[in-house]
Amino acid sequence: MALTGLLTIMGTIVAGALLLQWVAARARRDRLAESQKIPFLGGSAPNTHAWQRFHVRYYSMTLLFIAFEMEMMFMYPWAVVYVAEGVKALAEMGMFLAILTVGILYGWREGIFRWQ
């Protein structure tokens, strides 16, 4: 099974890392005072939680990215048969990428690769 090796090494490292954190936490019994738990802000006190509505300034880029990334789904199988199919494969993928590039150019023109 192809997954065995992958899951084994993942499991080993994740378990080891969690164990190290757990043992280290058990080994030190001293507790942090509440005043020590204030998030670091260069000395000033936070007046809000960090977890709140946030204006992520590149949101349009992420939407373009989701649509563009779909093309990867088609490219991997294409790469496998590329040599066997020859010029036809080059032409078809060239067309496909050209179509999608129009989208990127449009997005660039609308300024979505900057902070909105």
């Binding site: 939407l63 373009l64 990334e69 779909m70 789904m73």
Partner: peptide, 19 residues
């Protein structure tokens, strides 16, 4: 793959509409 593409389209257009 087409189902996955539908999902991507749904997400991109859906979020754009929400925005």
């Amino acid at each position: 793959i087409i189902a996955m593409a539908v999902m991507a389209v749904e997400m991109a257009v859906g979020f754009a509409l929400i925005t």
